[in-house]
Design a protein around this nucleic acid. Structure first.
Ligand SMILES: [Zn+2]
Ligand SMILES: [Zn+2]
Ligand SMILES: [Zn+2]
Ligand SMILES: [Zn+2]
Lengths: 133, 133
DNA sequence: TTACATAATGTTATATTATAACAATTTAAA
DNA sequence: TTTAAATTGTTATAATATAACATTATGTAA
C-alpha cells in the first residue's frame, strides 16, 4: 500500500482532521468533523476521537472545554498545550487563542497559598468580540 | 401541599442537589447526582440538569469544564461565577477552588492586544495535589 | 532481510452527558 | 383571587465519548 502521507509527523487520519480544523474559522465539534470527513473514508467516532486525542497531545490543536470543540493552535509557543488561553465570544461562536507572554509568564509561575505550582493551565475568557460589540 | 423548604432562596430540588454537592469532597457528575437523589424523588436527568443550571447561574456551584463535574463554591466573593479558578489534581480527583485576590484582579482587569476586556473567565490549573506529590 | 514492537486504523457496540418537548403544580405578587 | 413566573414531573431522544477487538502499517534493530 501507498504510504506517501508521512512526510511530516502526522498520520493520514490525523492530517485530514488537522487540515479541516486548521482551515476552519470556528471551533469544530467531533461529530461535525466526522460528517465532514466521511467522504475521505473516516467513518466512525473512534477514528475521529483518536486523531483528536493525538493532535491535542502534540499541541497541534486545543480543546475548548466549555464548548466541547476544537481549534488549531495559533501559537508557536505552546507545542504541548501546557499553557493555553482563549477569548470566547458569547454571541457569535468566535474563539481566539490568546498569545500574551506576560499573561503566560504570570500564570506559569503562579503558586497558590500553599506554595503549590502547577504544570499546566487552561484559561477561557468570555465576552463579546469586536464584531458583536 | 407543604412548602416549608423555602426559608432560603433555593427550591426543593435545588436544595437537595446543592446539599449533596456541598457535602462532597469531590466534584460530582450529573448522573452520579441523579443516582444519589433518586430515593428523594428526583428521577430524571432534566430535573438534575435544571437544578444544576440554576445553581451555576447563581454561583452556588461551579462546573469543572474539563471534568463535566460540579463543585460547591468555596469563595464568598464569586456569587455569579464570573471569575473562577481551580486547581485540579491529575492523579486523584481532587479539585480546589482558588481564592486569590491578586490573581482575580489580574485576570479581571486583563485586556488583550486589541484592548478588549472580558466580563468573565474560568481558569483551570493542573498538577499534583499535596497528597499525591 | 526478517523479526519484533509500536502506532495507527477499521469496525461494532455501548456508555456517558445533555436537551427537547409538553403537561402539571407551586409560588410570588398584582 | 387571578395571573404570571418559576419549578417540577415525565418520556423520549440528541449529542458526546469510549470499550473492545481485529487488522494493517510503520519504525527499529538483530
Ligand atoms: Zn496553542
Ligand atoms: Zn462575536
Ligand atoms: Zn466560587
Ligand atoms: Zn491528588
Amino acid at each position: 500500500m501507498d504510504k506517501m502521507y508521512k512526510e511530516n509527523n502526522l498520520s493520514k487520519n490525523q492530517q485530514i482532521i488537522f487540515d479541516l480544523i486548521n482551515k476552519s474559522s470556528e471551533p469544530l465539534k467531533a461529530y461535525t468533523i466526522l460528517f465532514s470527513v466521511q467522504k475521505k473514508g473516516i467513518k466512525a467516532p473512534p477514528q475521529v476521537y483518536r486523531a483528536l486525542d493525538k493532535l491535542v497531545e502534540t499541541g497541534k490543536i486545543h480543546k475548548i472545554e466549555s464548548k466541547n470543540a476544537f481549534v488549531a493552535c495559533r501559537n508557536s509557543n505552546c507545542e504541548i498545550s501546557k499553557a493555553t488561553a482563549f477569548s470566547i465570544c458569547e454571541s457569535c461562536e468566535m474563539v481566539d487563542e490568546i498569545n500574551d507572554a506576560k499573561l503566560t509568564k504570570y500564570l506559569t509561575s503562579f503558586s497558590d497559598k500553599k506554595g503549590t505550582k502547577y504544570k499546566r493551565f487552561n484559561l477561557e475568557f468570555f465576552g463579546l468580540c469586536k464584531k458583536c460589540k
